[in-house]
Amino acid sequence: MIIVVPLNLVPDLVEDLEVDGSGAALETDGLKFKLNEFDDHALEEALLIKDSDQAQVLALALDTENIDKVLFTALAKGADRAVKITGADAAASSRALGSVFAEAARQLDADLVLTGVQSVADLEGQLGPAVAAALQAPFIGVVTNITVAGAGVAVRKEYASGITADFEMDLPAVIGVQAARQTPRYAPVSKVRQIQDSATLEELSITPGAGGAQVSISAMAHPERGEGAKNAVGYRRTGAGA
């Protein structure tokens, strides 16, 4: 089984986000990016399937600044191949990127595409359904557990209030991963460096198709703050430093 995992960078929310002079876009100066947390879970779930069912895991990412480290880290964690997609705009919407990743998945003979369930920036909808629509493959999102079942996969989807549902899916399939069965594994820096010296990143050129229906952003603003939390009546610090 070939599992393809698209890895996407998103703004690091630890930093303050600023709006640029246009009032409708992020100020990119000083903006730091990190791997979408849900994509990390998608990769972990793929590696867990590999551990139990001998799958081949392909980490996929758009060619942007600092992406090599993300892909080498994926290799250090146990991915079999790392592929950098050139020719597409990483800043495009999740909808537009859906067809790019779908075309890559097709060329790489993917049986399973695991995306993060969502990202902090996917205004135009989640990536997974967009990939699935372009592949004409079945899609289930908000999934926490994937196991091989016969010629397909069995998945568990989460609803609100702790209710879950079990499904079986035929392959090829696209799944939006909410959380892996375990905390994503850690790759030590030394191992990433070692991989960096020995492994090579593959490249795949994809020409994006027509954009399709899009929304335009007319404004971006920090939400109005409420009054915030108040200390409870009579609250008083005690102990050291009080």
């Binding site: 703004p11 986000l17 709006v19 902090v120 205004l123 952003i217 971006m220 939400p223």
Partner: peptide, 9 residues
């Protein structure tokens, strides 16, 4: 962005 920005679309 984790509730940090309101986007008018």
């Amino acid at each position: 962005y984790g509730g940090k920005l309101d986007i008018t679309a």
